[in-house]
Design a protein around this nucleic acid. Structure first.
Lengths: 242, 242
DNA sequence: GAGTGGTCTAGACCACTAC
DNA sequence: TAGTGGTCTAGACCACTCC
């Protein structure tokens, strides 16, 4: 697809999404059938279906064969104040000038057995070990512990780490981010959390452990990000595809 | 589709998934192109593409226009021992006879303002408030606090709650689970956690807050499940669709 | 230029649901 | 029986990547 140009199914999905949000198609009512929508937008039914598939995946509508398509609406999906933090791009991009960084530790090491598995690197392949404290508006927010192959992303320096690491990766590595596997758990505060996040010894920590890979399948990084329990939550929408 | 019968694209997805797991298509290599696969399986290219779309969404492969399809493999996705707990069906179904339940509290209430929003019910519509402690192999595992419309799921009793609530819902309500919105955070242990989960006052708690809705769009329940930080983690695979 | 995946069509048949 | 969404085809054109 040409850049900036939406595919028809994307345009249709966006339009129907808009109508649902604008209450043109209110929750708990039925959407027009695919045939009618195809006629309205002047496309084939397959194209409409693809648009509806997207919306179904987002949880906005629900399709049922033989019956029709229900509007679920965006009502139950957001409750309270949100901060998704489901971003691939770093904090810097999200917060802009409100973000700053302290580089606590920066080493090049040879990977341990478990790190070899997680990063998919060889024993003799050097790996960066990075510890950074990220601030938001001058207040400590996230304590990051990152491992990244030095062969894959050469030339990382302390001054790179002071800014946006992901921005640097994008310059050096031609591929984009393909995806991430994340594990979220709660933990007790350790000495790093107390020193840098200002956690008290009985403050719970939310840790997001992740493996990020690139569009060509290479594993880019393995990292653990720790937050004070009051500073972060993780949101997921789970659609039952059965 | 007839039940038990797989659609072609589902069969093809399963077959390719098997080949990836069996290392017929090893990670970091290229998959045959869609034309060849279509020829091999005797289907049209659209059908192959739909199968590959599924696998891409699972994070097993990555497609790139103009280049081809990379195998990512299931390698980086599982690290260490896993227990997904991304299940719609209750603990009872997952653990079978290893699960048991203590009903701590069971009331019918009228919803507060915030509960009305979350459950999508009216002010005068009675709602169950349920607190249960779920055991695994006789050991306390999850402390559940559940709200559910009594109109939607009539006839809940303490003895129903001793067994599988979801099993009962399936009997009473014709719809299936459509999806869930979840928020995961860390929290300090409160008096309930200490009393029922055996948490110490400085033990972190992992809380999963969720709204579950049915296939017709009705919100079924709003609940909070709390675990000792040592007993549970939450896993997500995030695919970058850009 | 050759090959890749992405999109789109026009029409077909199917299973399921409701009346 | 009529209407719904699900699947599938055979072929078309496109943008992109690599050589």
């Amino acid at each position: 697809m040409e850049k900036d140009k939406l595919a028809k199914y994307q345009y249709i999905a966006a339009e129907i999404r808009r109508r649902i949000n604008d209450n043109v198609y209110p929750p708990k009512t039925m959407l027009p059938d695919q045939q009618s929508l195809a006629a309205e937008f002047g496309v084939s039914r397959m194209t409409v279906k693809k648009a509806l598939d997207m919306l179904a995946h987002e949880g906005m509508i629900y399709k049922r064969s033989g019956l029709g398509t229900f509007v679920l609406g965006s009502v139950p999906f957001k409750f309270g104040d949100e901060s998704p933090v489901t971003d691939f791009d770093g904090l810097t991009r999200m917060l802009g000038k409100r973000a700053s960084t302290l580089v606590i530790d920066f080493d090049v090491i040879f990977p341990s057995e478990s790190l070899m598995k997680r990063l998919g690197v060889h024993q003799d392949e050097p790996v960066y070990e990075i510890r950074r404290l990220r601030y938001k508006d001058g207040k400590p927010l996230i304590l990051e512990h990152t491992f990244m192959s030095a062969r894959l992303v050469p030339g990382v320096t302390r001054s790179v780490l002071k800014g946006s690491l992901y921005h640097y990766v994008h310059k050096v590595v031609p591929q984009k981010f393909g995806g991430a596997y994340r594990k979220i758990h709660a933990d007790k505060a350790d000495k790093f959390d107390m020193e840098y996040l200002g956690a008290k010894s009985d403050d719970p920590i939310l840790e997001v452990e992740q493996i990020v890979w690139l569009t060509n399948g290479t594993t880019l990084e393995y990292s653990r990000s720790r937050n004070l329990y009051t500073e972060r939550e993780y949101s997921v929408t789970e659609i039952n595809d059965v």
